[in-house]
């Protein structure tokens, strides 16, 4: 079932001024329940504009946005409800921490949803545990946490609202390799637990390759690819042309194929490369004739 659907959405900024500019043009995308959708595109391609449409932070200049089948702008007074359904983690979400304690910060969202104190508490603990924040940190000021912990606290604040769609804009930027890996694992775990639909915007092709099962590619305000991760990363040349890239291991596989090695064009993680190469390296017939 489609959780989110955009129909011919166009967004223009500064309409009626000399600075008028089209950020998105005629974007129609359908996100199904349980999808893990990766969104990639160069700076200025419209990724952030696109995700802001989905929870009503931006109103399309033309077109409609449907969440669970309902036009979110049908009744603009109820737009707040959409924000509980579609949770958004912005870039550098740690800059938005503001409460006295980590607990209160994570509780802010669910409290605004009008949940009981017990339910709020249960959600705060669940979310904190999921992102790997130790209990004793909950009583601290968010400003005493390390950078990585702050990021986790901010993400927990959105997860605690238990939205049916979770959108994350560059959640791993600036984290070290192990931090990236564990945060991505936690997002996957959350998705599994709550059967959430997840949209992940990232500049890291490796991150997208690891977690997404579908990838949306934006360029200059248009959708240029919308396909399985495998299919998108097999179009390396087109991706390079629009300022993107493919994981290094995909490039290795492409170089080998070019030299005549029979490898599938669906290799985008180290694990897949290893699996495909081992039988070839350990004997048998290997070269395409």
């Amino acid at each position: 079932m489609a959780v989110i659907e955009t129909k011919q959405c166009t967004v223009r900024y500064s309409v009626g001024t000399p600075f008028e500019r089209e950020a998105l043009e005629g974007v129609s995308v359908c996100v199904n329940e349980g999808d893990f959708l990766g969104i990639i595109g160069h700076t200025g391609s419209g990724k952030s504009t696109f995700v802001q449409l989905l929870n009503g932070l931006l109103k399309p200049t033309e077109g409609t946005v449907l969440v669970n089948g309902r036009d979110i702008w049908e009744n603009p007074k109820e737009i707040r409800r959409v924000r509980f359904e579609v949770g958004m983690v912005f870039q550098y979400p740690e800059h938005q921490l503001f409460e006295e304690t980590v607990y209160k910060d994570i509780a802010f969202g669910p409290k605004n949803q009008g949940l009981s104190d017990e339910e709020v508490a249960a959600r705060v603990y669940r979310a904190a545990e999921l992102v790997g924040l130790r209990r004793e940190l909950l009583d601290k000021s968010p400003f005493e946490l390390s950078g990585g912990e702050k990021r986790r606290a901010a993400i927990a604040g959105v997860m605690a609202m238990e939205p049916s769609v979770l959108i994350l804009d560059e959640p791993t930027a600036g984290l070290d390799p192990r931090g990236r890996e564990s945060l991505l694992d936690q997002i996957c775990a959350y998705k599994k637990q709550h059967n959430t639909t997840v949209l992940l915007v990232s500049h890291s092709m490796e991150d997208i390759a690891r977690v997404a099962d579908r990838v949306l590619v934006l360029a200059d305000g248009h959708v240029v690819m919308d396909d399985t991760t495998e299919a998108v990363f097999s179009r390396a040349e087109e991706l390079e042309q629009i300022g993107l890239s493919v994981p290094a291991v995909t490039k290795v596989a492409a170089a080998l194929r070019k030299a005549g090695v029979a490898l599938p064009d669906s290799i985008y993680t180290v694990e897949q490369a290893k699996k495909a190469l081992l039988p070839l390296l350990k004997g048998g017939t290997h070269r395409a004739v």
């Binding site: 390799p177 290795v252 290893k274 081992l278």
Partner: peptide, 17 residues
């Protein structure tokens, strides 16, 4: 808690096999 470039990682994984 660091990583290595993917080509290095691939060779490492294959060497282990």
């Amino acid at each position: 808690e660091l990583d290595v470039p993917q080509p290095t990682e691939l060779c490492f994984a294959l060497r282990r096999e």
